[in-house]
């Protein structure tokens, strides 16, 4: 049985210690929101007792602090930061470190041992100042409401296998056996005829409304300028064709199967060897697209064909920026 109130207290001690001792200037941590048990990422500086008091760690810390770092990169540049991460966040952080998007020496990493996440909206809004949140091998309990892990809205957590990553500080202990990556949903789809599969994915592409939430919430989708966006370039009559050619329109704004497919397939390729399967894109999608069904197509190849472990170590080479002489060749029709 894990009691997240005591683990949150321990986390607060570590965070306030780091700030007090001046080891870091700012800490990115989850705090309790207005709409408990929802949490939100918050930037905490020294002396912000009001925010520090609200620092929390629970299965409802469903957002990624790494996304926060990515989004506030310019503002936080050159500052020494503490960052509280779950296992999947640390995995994503390692991907960004591999790509030199962030500097390891700027960061103090506080890892929380995560047993899985739960959708806050499935639990009633708790009354009272202190809400006991506990979990065990079977599920999560908030006050009197209990839900099994399988029933808590986070399918990717059920197959999460990350553990014992090496952060600088650790909070909590695992209370549940980790799962194994599982590709059953892919196997079911791949058993279909290609034509049926095309229909399935065309329906997925068609429903996309291009709000780009999947891209924006993704902790590793960190390009400063996305290939899909028009880009910020001044085009004047004197702009050279060579300059214009550097900013082609890969996907136009039309909401159609083909243009949406260009967006989603491109994203899938850009995520090859980088996707940590945190599943946040799928949960954020406002029209409920099963985005893991498409991302897992590259995840499956990366993990099973190339045996590449995503984000294990900041010193590993990125998947697409490396190669092996033993990489498989195109087997023509029989790939």
């Amino acid at each position: 049985m894990r009691d997240y109130r005591s683990e949150s207290a321990r986390l607060r001690e570590i965070v306030s210690g780091l700030l007090e001792r001046g080891e870091v200037e700012l800490v990115v941590a989850w705090t309790e929101g207005e709409d408990r048990p929802r949490t939100r990422e918050t930037l905490i500086g020294k002396g912000r007792e009001d925010l520090l008091r609200k620092v929390v760690w629970s299965p409802f810390c469903t957002t990624s602090t790494v996304t926060f770092l990515k989004k506030n990169k310019a503002a936080l540049a050159g500052k020494r930061l503490g960052v509280v991460v779950k296992d999947c966040d640390l995995q994503a952080l390692n991907v960004l470190l591999q790509e030199h998007f962030l500097k390891r020496e700027d960061l103090v990493i506080i890892g929380v041992r995560c047993d899985g996440l739960a959708e806050a909206d499935l639990f009633p809004r708790p009354e009272g100042a202190e809400v006991p949140i506990t979990s065990d091998g079977g599920g999560v309990t908030v006050g009197k409401q209990r839900r099994a892990w399988e029933d808590s809205g986070f399918t990717t957590c059920l197959t999460c296998s990350y553990e014992d990553m090496k952060p600088d500080h650790v909070v909590g202990e695992y209370g549940r056996k980790k799962g194994k990556p599982e590709w059953g949903h892919l196997a079911r789809l791949q058993a279909l005829e290609p034509g049926k599969r095309r229909e399935h994915y065309a329906a997925l592409f068609e429903s996309c409304i291009r709000c780009y939430a999947c891209r924006e919430v993704c902790p590793v989708c960190a390009c400063v300028e996305c290939a899909i966006d028009p880009g910020e370039r001044a085009i004047t009559p004197r702009t050279a064709p060579s300059v214009k050619a550097c900013a082609p329109v890969w996907a136009c704004r039309e909401r159609s199967v083909s243009e949406n497919a260009v967006y989603l397939l491109t994203r899938t390729m850009h995520m090859a060897g980088r996707c940590v399967r945190c599943g946040w894109c799928e949960r954020a999608c406002p029209v409920g697209l099963p985005l893991m069904e498409i991302l897992d197509l590259s995840n499956d190849a990366v993990r099973r064909v190339y045996r590449y472990e995503v984000g294990r170590d900041p010193a590993d080479p990125p998947f697409l920026a490396s190669y092996a002489e033993t990489d498989p060749d195109d087997k023509g029709a029989g790939h």
């Binding site: 918050t42 926060f68 291009r210 709000c211 780009y212 939430a213 891209r215 924006e216 919430v217 954020a284």
Partner: peptide, 12 residues
């Protein structure tokens, strides 16, 4: 500060 600039709030 934690806004990710997606279009959910406005598209919905």
């Amino acid at each position: 500060e934690r806004c990710v600039s997606c279009g959910i709030c406005t598209f919905l």
